[in-house]
Amino acid sequence: MHWTERHVDPGAYRKVVGRFATGVAIVTTRLGGTDHAMTVNSFTSVSLEPLLVLFCAEKVARFHDAVLEAGVWGVSVLPASMEEASRFFAHRGRPLNGQLARWPHHRGESGVALFDAAIATLECTTTDVHEGGDHSIVVGAVTSMGMPSEEAPLMYHEGRYRRL
């Protein structure tokens, strides 16, 4: 039987993969002078040689086309104190203008926004984009990084925010 012929209930699938605890990050990009941002828990290191990371972007999200066109993006790994920001940037359809104003941030070398309270930041240049069903897998070369805060990380497990 080919794998696509099996029936797996999407609701059950979400529960099963939700057992994998993840960190939470906000990925940002800047296109035409406008900031775009999206909460992700699909961020991971890929390679040490060269330095590569990836995140997954849902194809219907406006962030998807913006980040692919811009070709540069930032990752701010969130501390537990930034749960509100995580929730805000996970919400669809929010206004783009002024969306970053509530959270202190700075511009990286590529011009993308990086959150000051992040426990880790990276700037990346897109190297590859792969099909992943209803998402695109965006791979990027790391061009800069930092560790601005020593707070405990924000975690996501079984559909809820958690703290260590």
Results as ranks from 00 to 15, higher is better:
144 S>R: 12
102 R>M: 07
138 V>D: 00
51 L>A: 11
122 L>C: 06
18 G>A: 06
120 A>K: 03
69 E>N: 01
39 T>P: 02
144 S>E: 04
81 S>Y: 08
18 G>W: 13
137 I>W: 01
139 V>T: 03
25 A>N: 07
74 G>M: 05
23 G>F: 07
148 P>D: 07
20 F>M: 12
132 G>Y: 04
154 L>V: 02
53 V>D: 05
63 F>K: 01
119 I>S: 06
25 A>G: 05
23 G>D: 03
36 H>W: 05
145 M>S: 09
8 V>C: 10
30 R>A: 08
61 A>P: 07
11 G>K: 14
141 A>R: 14
71 G>V: 00
25 A>D: 04
109 E>G: 14
102 R>E: 04
73 W>P: 01
82 M>S: 07
127 T>A: 12
12 A>R: 14
31 L>V: 06
117 A>R: 13
16 V>I: 10
89 F>L: 01
58 E>H: 14
139 V>M: 06
89 F>K: 00
137 I>E: 01
35 D>V: 10
92 R>F: 15
163 R>D: 10
141 A>C: 14
54 L>Q: 02
118 A>P: 00
49 E>H: 13
116 D>W: 08
64 H>I: 06
19 R>N: 10
45 S>T: 11
98 G>M: 10
2 H>T: 15
11 G>Y: 14
9 D>M: 04
101 A>D: 07
55 F>R: 01
71 G>T: 02
67 V>F: 10
17 V>H: 11
14 R>Q: 06
138 V>S: 01
17 V>Q: 09
130 H>T: 15
127 T>W: 15
46 V>F: 04
150 E>H: 03
63 F>Q: 00
134 D>N: 11
35 D>H: 06
87 R>W: 06
148 P>C: 06
45 S>H: 08
101 A>L: 14
133 G>H: 11
48 L>A: 08
